[in-house]
Design a protein around this nucleic acid. Structure first.
Lengths: 262, 262
DNA sequence: GCCAACGCATTGTCTAGTCAATCTAGATGA
DNA sequence: TCATCTAGATTGACTAGACAATGCGTTGGC
């Protein structure tokens, strides 16, 4: 039997203590120096142990106050919401339907013409070199970013239309697409889970150990032509991803994924 | 302007090199000693930098060979599949429909009677103390666990039925529930993203930096009574979560979430 | 009473090592 | 030839420090 490493024991002990309520959410853990004495080891080893918990997203260090147990509060992320007859209570977020705790939602919109990524190209069925219009939104709550949301459409489809207005479009951008003869009637959603890049972590103010979901929503019109691809970055600690399905409204076909999953 | 820490620079440089193809998936990074010399620093600092990339799930250490860039291959995780008329190609997995790359799927099933967690209790609308039947499945590909899948039903509903058979039920457990007068016609899916606990990481053989989704699928019968709650642990690096939605088949109501999100 | 300066506890970054554990590949021996 | 042993390279765990950066609370000046 191999003895478990000291740093592992420290992490395990503290994790257990957090789980059983010894350290409730928001409370302070013992300092590195205290743990160094308690476990009769060096500070580097204690830091290694605490690092495990930080990377699990369980605690966060606040310099120079100590380590604190993280408190979680999640919003509902509901990609199907835009297909609902009754719009959600707060319509500035098409995807977020939830208790905002009285925090003020807002969003920054930026429209540009870009070369699409391979993922977007595959989903829109574009030739290499073809350009797309990108509508980038940063959704905020009380001024801090809550998620990133980039919609892409063939440039030829929306050039000169309201879709490219870098501000709220009252009737919704989907209504604009419908007016252009491409109402979105079907959407395929894909979620890729991963850790954020440092840039993403910074933009979204993510603590260490917080995973994200990269959400690709591909919208098809009645002709089954892909019209719009929306790429969202959804921080895992701030959302629950929710959707539902009905048995009597099933679709008759095999899953159709025209592109290969990476 | 603050200078960026050395360990940060090491992580950034290597991340960039991985991104631009200098180190393609599967290839070997420079060793710690090489990096120590290259950056004229100490080995601990180099390790700190490499640790960043490991926690991002970008590289993995293989002792004593070095650090390697991780290769990703994902299966399609498709919770809606069980509502499809045509069963998926491989029916041993109700949720996984995908290219298995010739790997052999299998599952271990274990049935027991347990006290439900708070999450399950909330979703099934149980009183404190009420017991549930739990059907635990470990789904495997070529012998290694691919995801964990625990279904829960009121004990009084399924005691003595085929639902509690600790083996494959040919007609499916949902058919058993239907025979009992509780066909599941509606399902609500919730995904909570987080880092795995060490136990989960070990059971699923997860590398550092691999997030998971905790998937709660609550099945309702025609009376809108919650019948079954299935909790799945879905490793983020091995799956894409996929579902779709149709405009002309929308549901008429506001999102209904009878319990509070934690 | 109010505000600024300062002390100080705490985490962040880093050095320069030691010894252990593990797998590969080459050398050795039957 | 084939199996076995061994040496070496590499990461894992850890020690014992140093100095920097940060923000909170207290103290002192006005």
């Amino acid at each position: 039997m191999k003895p478990t490493p000291v740093y592992q024991r420290i992490a395990d002990d503290l994790r257990q203590a957090v789980a059983d309520g010894t350290y409730p959410p928001g409370s302070k853990l013992p300092t590195e120096n205290v743990l160094t004495e308690r476990y009769e080891t060096s500070r580097a080893t204690v830091r290694q142990g605490l690092g495990v918990l930080v990377n699990e997203g369980l605690v966060e260090p606040r310099r120079p106050q100590g380590y604190f147990v993280i408190e979680h509060k999640r919003l509902v992320y509901r990609p199907q919401a835009e297909f609902r007859r009754r719009p959600p209570a707060v319509d500035i977020f098409t995807n977020l339907v939830a208790e905002y705790d009285g925090r003020a939602p807002s969003q920054d919109i930026e429209v540009s013409i870009v070369e699409p990524t391979q993922m977007v190209r595959d989903r829109l069925g574009l030739e290499a070199g073809e350009l797309v219009a990108a509508r980038r939104r940063v959704r905020k709550l009380d001024g801090t970013a809550y998620n990133l949301n980039d919609s892409h459409v063939r440039l030829s489809l929306v050039q000169g239309t309201d879709w490219m207005t870098p501000a709220d479009v009252a009737r919704g951008t989907n209504a604009v697409l419908a007016e252009l003869g491409h109402e979105i009637v079907y959407a395929l959603h894909e979620f890729y889970l991963r850790m954020p890049s440092p840039q993403e972590a910074q933009r979204l103010n993510l603590g260490a150990g917080v995973p994200i979901a990269e959400h690709y929503a591909t919208g098809f019109d009645a002709d089954e032509t892909p019209i719009q691809v929306t790429v969202s970055i959804v921080p895992g600690d701030r959302h629950v991803i929710v959707f539902d399905s009905y048995r009597d409204r099933e679709n008759s076909d095999q899953p159709r994924i025209p592109w290969g999953a990476p």
